[in-house]
């Protein structure tokens, strides 16, 4: 059971839920930037929620299913075709052996997740199948996918021929944030600007982080002793243009951290394209926990509704 990559698009890589637990040696957890889309895609195709799929940045991937199998595209929305016939995102789809899936350019969001029944079964490295691009480990040969790559699939659960769908969560243009450790040290004008200016993603954004551009933000916060950071942390370098850390962010940093995106919105943070603008909105810690609980409850409800057969 394999799939063959015909065109990788700008950046496609094998990703799963990541390899947490190695921060102490400087290895980021990594994994799908939009971990929620990965979980939902896996749910649609009957996989365990941490099974590996293909993260497709901005679209453009084409692949051939070498055997009949079920699959789902979640995350960003894009026009996609199966042997030239349009297919929808966020639903279980079924391919025959030899059929070609072509994913167009993302029309809403930045990263699609392709989950295939059985999961992409590349070797597990340090507890995960995720591609860590910087350290060149995991995934397919530790690198982004290229035309001609033949990826092994795991054993799929028997699935009904139905095509259940999930209504995609709306990304919006706002990320909910909590004040970070250096928030109180910022002048009021800088605080106001962080929360009220639109922040545009620059082209040098990647899986490590989104570099944001906006009106120059002057502040007096200098470098700090190196400390742990994690996805969702908004760093503020001296030049005043924030960096929103994503899944592959390095484990330690030295910039001020005025804001931290709440856990429930980490998937949203991964779905902005260069050129798009986002806003930060402050919430309370209580709201952050409630949002996370609501998201997990929603996942649990979907799991029940889809009534996946046991292995």
């Amino acid at each position: 059971m394999t799939v063959t990559i015909l065109k990788p698009g700008p950046l496609s890589s094998v990703q799963d839920a990541g390899r947490p637990g190695h921060g102490g040696i400087g290895l980021p957890a990594g994994g799908a930037c939009d971990a929620l889309a990965l979980q939902l895609g896996n749910l649609l195709v009957g996989n365990d929620q941490g099974a590996a799929g293909i993260e497709i940045s901005l679209g453009g991937l084409q692949l051939r299913f070498d055997r009949a199998c079920s699959f789902a595209l979640t995350g960003a929305l894009a026009d996609a075709t199966l042997d030239g016939v349009p297919v929808g995102c966020w639903r279980r789809l079924h391919a025959q052996a030899g059929q070609v899936l072509a994913v167009g350019y993302a029309v809403l969001g930045a990263r699609l997740l392709l989950c295939v029944a059985g999961g992409i079964e590349v070797p597990v490295v340090m507890g995960s199948r995720a591609t860590a691009l910087q350290s060149a480990i995991g995934g397919w040969q530790g690198r982004a996918l290229a035309a001609g790559d033949v990826l092994p699939l795991g054993e799929a659960r028997m699935l009904p021929v139905s095509e259940p769908a999930i209504r995609p969560p709306g990304r919006g243009d706002t990320l909910r944030v909590l004040p970070g450790p250096e928030w109180p040290l910022l002048e009021r004008s800088a605080q106001h600007q962080l929360l009220h200016a639109p922040w545009r993603l620059t082209p040098d954004s990647n899986r490590m982080g989104a570099k944001l551009a906006g009106p120059p933000l002057t502040h007096g916060l200098g470098a700090l002793p190196s400390h742990a950071v994690q996805p969702g942390v908004v760093q503020l370098p001296q030049a005043g243009q924030p960096i929103l850390l994503l899944a592959d962010a390095q484990v330690t940093g030295g910039y001020a951290k005025p804001l931290v995106v709440i856990q429930a919105d980490l998937w949203r943070a991964a779905q902005f394209r260069p050129g798009e603008s986002l806003h930060f909105a402050e919430v309370s810690a209580k709201d952050a926990l409630a949002a996370l609980q609501a998201q997990r409850d929603w996942l649990a409800r979907l799991r029940r509704v889809l009534k996946l057969p046991q292995r």
Partner: peptide, 17 residues
């Protein structure tokens, strides 16, 4: 909990629920 050392600091990463 994941414990990550920095220079003069120690960070706990945990599931808040």
């Amino acid at each position: 909990v994941e414990w990550v050392l920095g220079m003069g600091n120690l960070t706990a990463r945990f599931d808040p629920l």
